[in-house]
Design a protein around this nucleic acid. Structure first.
Lengths: 337, 337
DNA sequence: CTTTAACACGCAAACGTTTGCGTCACAAGT
DNA sequence: ACTTGTGACGCAAACGTTTGCGTGTTAAAG
């Protein structure tokens, strides 16, 4: 608080110099063992707590790592955050959380804040259209993209083969005999939205069918959008016999709306979800994503880059990217027609 | 990065002093408007980013606020974190996330880390048995307890009237005619565990019934425990006709296990959940908690305390606490017997 | 023409660490 | 007795800001 204990206080207490105290606490063999122990004893007694800010300023490197994501309420981002927090803690870093709600200005503020804090690294799931300034700031930091991939940002990326993921789910429905298949997806301003829709379309063209565009609904990747979109899909005109939810929050929204409308799954409607939803009853047929593995890989990569960047100056590792595969987990929410 | 732009660089570029640059960027009227604009222009051109660490060291206050919670994967803590992150962002603070997994040593490391970072404030949902050192560190910080309440920690608390919450859910089941009611709860080493169990028991004693202790299962507040406990409850001996899940993660675990075992809800078993689970099918009868409101109130209180603490030295606001009420949300997961 | 005052800016210290180098005392080697 | 060595510690600078105070210039007031 106001009057925290510093090296100086310990030094005065022991009639030693500040540097000796500093070295003693760092277990520098240059200081005699006896002194080291006396120092540590007094430090404990006084309740000394090192000032990582001062240390960071002197040494040039902070122990902060930033995580910038659009949301944190749902399990998908929760799992990402948890995995990264674990990795950070193990490596002696602290995770600073920035929620953007996909708002470019909020995103810019968060990024700026993290750069001001001199975060050693940044993990970001960028908003659809990041500010020029955001991009400029990010390009000057040690940064990794997670899940979404922004073209204008030349930094490594860790994510999912979204196209293959949705393709597998859609193909599964086609194989079960469905033709009027609905699609709830993020708008194509998002890299994930583009890839997923492409996967959906490829499943049809590969089967020699036409893409049922009248059943495709694109919007914000929120539960609210999915609920609303599904409702319109269900009440206006011809109904689909199956739906692909191309996003974790969209899956939630779809299921909520279906429950609310009394739509029986899979009797009235077959559903393929995105991301695991172990809570759904009955078990959901879903596209399983190795969320935790992605986050771990991303975190470890970032830490490696931070350690590399430390001695020499920044090296451009722009092109790198790692793609993870999904798996279709069969459940009871789809049926043959 | 390696060579960040500092006030000094701008000063040299403009043949001005460092202090003038600093004041100009802070819009100090002491500096002429013309100079201020020239400085800002050059700052933008050079890509100057203030060093909040240095600022914090000089001014004594950082822009960091710590959030220490056992988990972040589930929606309950996700909602807390999101609300807090919003409040922090709006007030110009940054949220540092620490996940403890209810491990006292991890918790101590996180708390120490935040004190080292000179976080302006701390929000903590403490583990069952915090370390002595943890308590000592916390007592020296501006800190608020969230949800759980640790007796040894004399700091303000924001949480739920847990006893009343579980009481309402249990009484609801009793009123529906249930007698063999199971209880899945956190162990009573947690303040929440104690209060919730007390609410469960009071519902029976108030109705002149005996507490069905053979159906009570206490353990770690994780989905895994609830699943396991329910399975044993369901397969060993006489079955309960209803269950109260006294925790968000326990609710998830119970529902998963029930789905897995093919237990029909509410035909075979009535269920009262804890915390909203809008995704469950059919709608869950649940104890709704004003999670977001709690977090917002907690965050605003903390910010106020931070601002108060700033000028004078720390004031003890030890005894304060705010209790929020829950509401029983009727759903389709309970039936009369 | 001098005194004052307003204005615009510079100096330097301080925040708490870390670290290269210097210093001092004492013991061992010639 | 004189060098050499070494173990144990102190000095001071640096990291990037902020800020109280001092200083020089210019214009208005006497």
């Amino acid at each position: 608080m106001s009057g925290a204990v510093t090296l100086k206080h310990i030094a005065e207490r022991l009639n030693l110099s500040i540097s000796t105290i500093g070295r003693a606490l760092a277990d520098d063999p240059q200081i005699s063992l006896a002194t080291r122990e006396r120092v540590k004893a007094v430090a404990g007694e006084l309740g000394y707590v090192a000032h990582s800010g001062a240390r960071a300023m002197r040494s040039g490197r902070s122990t902060l790592i930033g995580l910038i994501i659009p949301d944190i309420q749902n399990e998908f981002y929760g799992t990402l955050a948890k995995a990264l927090a674990e990795i950070c803690a193990n490596a002696g870093f602290q995770l600073v959380l920035g929620i953007t709600e996909d708002d470019p200005e909020s995103e810019e503020r968060q990024v700026r804040g993290l750069l001001e804090a001199r975060a050693s690294g940044l993990v970001i799931t960028a908003s659809p259209r990041p500010t020029r300034e955001t991009l400029s700031l990010l390009s000057r930091s040690t940064c990794v993209q997670l899940i979404r991939r922004t073209g204008q940002l030349e930094v490594p990326w860790f994510g999912i083969d979204e196209e293959a993921a949705i393709h597998s789910g859609t193909a599964h429905l086609i194989e079960l005999g469905h033709r009027r298949i609905g699609y709830l997806g993020a708008s194509t301003t998002l890299s994930t939205g583009r890839s997923r829709l492409a996967g959906f379309e490829r499943a049809f063209t590969e089967a020699g069918l036409e893409v049922p565009r009248e059943f495709v609904r694109l919007g914000r990747p929120r539960a609210a959008f999915a609920a609303e979109a599904f409702e319109s899909l269900w009440t206006d005109g011809e109904r689909p016999t199956a739906i692909v939810a191309a996003g974790a929050r969209l899956t939630v929204g779809l299921l909520q709306a279906a429950t609310r409308l009394g739509v029986a799954i899979p009797a009235d409607l077959s559903v393929v979800g995105y991301g695991d939803a172990p809570w759904w009853n009955p078990n959901l047929t879903t596209i399983s994503l190795p969320v935790r593995d992605i986050a771990l890989a991303c975190g470890e990569f970032l830490l490696r880059r931070i350690r590399e960047t430390e001695p020499s100056s920044a090296r451009s590792a722009a092109g790198q990217s790692v793609t993870f595969a999904s798996a279709l987990t069969p459940g009871a929410s789809t049926r043959r027609v």
